[in-house]
Amino acid sequence: MIQAEHLSKKYTGHLGRKPTLALSDVSLHVKEKEIFGIVGPNGAGKSTLLKILLGLVKASSGIASLNGVSVSEIRSRQQLGYLPENPCLYDSLSVVDHLNFIARLYQLPKDLLSKRMDDVLTRVGLDDVAHRSLRTYSKGMVQRAALACALFTEPDLLILDEPMSGLDPLGRKMVLDIIREYNSRGNTVLFCSHVLNDVERICDRIAIMNKGKLVVTVTPQQLQQEEGDSPLESLFMRTVLEEGSA
C-alpha cells in the first residue's frame, strides 16, 4: 500500500540559515488493511514524511509510492484521505461547502452525495451545525470537520497527522472508533501521534522516529516484552533518550 525507500529530505537554508536534515534514509512499508502508527518527539520528521507521501514536499533522495503509483503523480492521491496537523479549512465556508467541493471533484452522483454527506456528518457529530461557517466552530469542531472531509470519499488509505489534537476525551474516543471501524472495512490507516496510549491501543505496527530517522518498528506482541504500565512509553523513552532528541 505505502512503499518508501531510502527517503531523505534536506531543507535548504535561506538568508544565511543552516540547511536542516529533516529526514534521513527512511524506508517504510505499510501493508494493506493495516493501522500503522508513527510516534516520535517534536521535530523527529513525522510530518515531513507524511508530506512527502502526499506530494506536498519533494524528497531530496529516495522514492515513495502509494498503491504502486509514485507520489509525484496526482493519481496516487485518488484514493487518499488526509487530515493535516492543525487542519486549516476555509473559515468563511461551511463544512457542507467543503464536502460539495470534494463531491464535485470526484464527480459523486447526487443521490449518493446526500446520503454520504448525512452519514459522515452524523459520524463526526456535526450534522446540527453543518451549514454554519467554520469561523464559528471551536478548534475541536474544525478538527472533526477536517476528518469528515478526509473520510467523505471513503478512501482506501487514510493519512492522519495528529488526529486527536484539540479534541476532548469524547472527541478522541470518537476518532479512535472511526479509525477502527474504517480499518475493519478493509482500509489502511497511517497516522502520527504524540498520544502513545492511543497509538498502542489501535495500531497493528508502530514505528518510532527520532532525529529524522526511523529507529525501530514494533508490533503490539513485541511490545508485550517491554516492562511497565505502558510498554510503548517505556520503549519510546528508552529509544529517544539513547539517541537524544532533535
Binding site: Y82, P84, C88, H98
Partner: peptide, 14 residues
C-alpha cells in the same frame, strides 16, 4: 501561509 492549500493539494489536484 495558513496551509489551507494542504486540504486541496492532498486531493488529486495538480
Amino acid at each position: 501561509e495558513r496551509r489551507t492549500v494542504f486540504s486541496l493539494l492532498s486531493r488529486p489536484i495538480s
